[in-house]
Nucleic acid binder design. Sequence first.
RNA 1: GCCCGGGUGGUGAAAUUGGUAGACACAAGGGACUUAAAAUCCCUCGGAGGCAACUCCGUGCCGGUUCGAGUCCGGCCCCGGGCACCA
Length: 819
Amino acid sequence: MNAVYDPHAIEAQAQNYWDESESFRATESGEGEKYYCLAMFPYPSGRLHMGHVRCYTLGDVINRYRRLKGHNVMQPMGWDAFGLPAENAAIKNGIPPASWTKDNIAYMRNQMKRLGFGIDWSREFATCDPEYYHWEQWLFVKLYEKGLVYRKNSIVNWDPVDQTVLANEQVVDGRGWRSDAIVERREMAQWFLKITDFAEELLEELDNLPGWPESVKSMQRNWIGQSQGVEIDFQVVGDETTALTVFTTRPDTLLGATYVAVAPEHPLAQAAASENQEIATFIDECKQATTAEADLATMEKTGLPTNASVLHPLTGAELPVWVANFVLMEYGSGAVMSVPGHDQRDWEFARKYDIPVVQVIEPLGDEACDLAVAAFTEHGRCINSGEFDGLSFEEAFNGIADALAAKDAGRRVTNYRLRDWGVSRQRYWGCPIPMIHCDEEGCGVVPVPESDLPVILPTEVEFEGVRSPLTTMDSFLNCECPKCGKPARRETDTFDTFMESSWYYARFASHDANSPMVDDRVNYWAPVDHYVGGIEHAILHLLYARFYFKLMRDEGLVQGNEPFTNLLMLGMVLQDGKKMSKSAGDAGDPQKLLDRYGADTVRTAMMFAAPPDQSFEWSEAGLEGAMRFLKRLWGLVQEHTQTQAPDLDLETLTEPARELRRKTHTALQRADDDYGRRIQFNTVVSGVMELCNAVSKFPVESEQDQAVVVEALKMAVVLISPIAPHIAHDLWQTLGGSGALVDARWPELDESALEQTSLTLAVQVNGKVRGQIEIAAEASKEDILAAAKAEDNVVRHMEGKTIRKEIVVPNKLVNIVVG
RNA sequence: GCCCGGGUGGUGAAAUUGGUAGACACAAGGGACUUAAAAUCCCUCGGAGGCAACUCCGUGCCGGUUCGAGUCCGGCCCCGGGCACCA
């Protein structure tokens, strides 16, 4: 027995025990229902930060709790190893991305081990391993053959000085972050995955995910953005063969359309530019803009009229065609109809350029409607719309849709905001896109044959400037066309790193599979039962991962429809108001905290700081308190295990001993609910603290008192063990627990210990607390009210008034309404 | 701009289904022990008034529903996340 709590010795011992016993090696033949617990794998940026500590501790707490509950748990770990920072480090320090990444992984793996996470390290991999990305390339070729992959032009941020494509993050105030040159929009051929083919399924399946937070489902629904509307053709004047097609959710306002606007890249705009210098200049200016939607949404809306015009499909009126900076070629057809009377953006544009504003909808009730002040955007009743006058929104929607259909000038469509997934990146440190470009006629773009996969990314590279070394590396570039055998060139673009993070959860289940991608073990482990990660991934990563799972399903690789059953979205850990992954340097490095306090204290402080879904500013203030608590628990256990306690004899317990047992089992009940249902661990810590406080205050006067205290301490140790597993491992042995705690089972609740003979109720008069009464637990409503009305302060507040109402809330309070 | 969150003492927070606001901690102040310090233990700790009993006010702001609102509804303010090439 040790009088002093020595976290470093205890933690090393516990970790050795787990290693040697292979406690966390997960097998498909393990006992109990499988439980796949996964925290989002990290980008190996260098060192862990406190955001990582929080995320992986939370995952580990769930893992260890489920294990206590008898599940066959798997908790793997790997590395999201491709990405921009490795290239930046290479450009800055001349270190090749592969070795930089490898060193970071080694360092971070050690930190994770030091934190005592119950990870099955035998399943570890990094996404930059060819054995991993091999199968990503394989699936991409399969999808290409199925027609789910295509190539089209798309706009990127182009740095004219560095001659390179920039990520949105690398564009600061419209300039390249390195060159400071004004960034241009440039079109480039890119590979796309047809995620829009799955828009409907991705939307509908959200209803089958009760284990996901509503907020995340809502964000995904809005992102997918299903809308019912009508596609309308506007015949171009002077060109019988061409029509501008626009989509609208408000066909009821069609008679109020006063102009049509097209994107700067639209052929009509381009044609106008060739005849008009002013338009050409305007279009050039539009090119100097970011591709980020947030900027597009807030920038000033500008435009110019062209000479072109179109015919209104119902009235035949000529409407002018404008070029406008807010219309995007990427969305739909690159053209919109504008109804300034009933759309606020169109209204502002029309007012600015003196375009007529026509009212065609009037309010149904008394909503404000003054088109001189603002557009009227609510649904209403049609006016100034000829045969459609007087119709409601639904009637007009249908009437106008039918009228257009009859003229073959429109059709009802379901539209999605979701766009296809552009997966090409003009970067070196990523998975090579397995495609070959051949100049021979009839060849063109040819996928790399399955037998030639993987296309391995060369890791011995030198960066000259900022461009991808692949673009100038002959040994990589030159190849044979798989179709005609003549010299051809490899694709030098690599995949978006979201490609790797979209299926790693499945690979963990069969990390060494040589059959395509995954083998049958995946169907034991998948879906992930609990997926833990930052709220910043609520849309893109989770949507792509869901999409990928469906692609794999359709390929016959996995069963089921969704990859993640339960989702825990973490708030962010902030440092000086910024999120950890964005703050510079080692500000958030937990290493010195681990050295000073040990893993259990760091874990406990982190769990105690805030509930999982809440963002908070990290502060070291809580560490001393967490350390103090663990020391106290340590001391209490040492103090009460000096002599052997007898078995509990419930019949002979004193009233205070029964009270302590009640607290012990209340703590169990609440911890079970917090761990299992509420996923709120800060209150588990405070619950165990309360139990320890109760033990401290409890005077041991008999052997049975000691037995009750030992039961309480054993409870405290088991309940805190998912959070502080090392000290719990040690104290469990001191307390005479059987076997290792890591293999123990969750304690059984003794319902009889929870029973109370008397209750304290609050008494309110007119909703304000005026006193308390102590009353037998089985007292009737009449008894309770009588006691309440006898309470001194209550009597005073009721004096001279008439009782209007009496409310008794069982086990809580009484409210007497007087007047 | 749009979508999704959040706002409670000096600080982190608790209050689970509309039922006693501030549990549990941190910091601070006071005390015990000590030659001293550390550690540990005890007490106080939302604001105002009062010797006290107790009273009034108080969960970002304004309004509403209710016997009762931190919790529900309407309107605002501020902060955070995401917006498709950061991961």
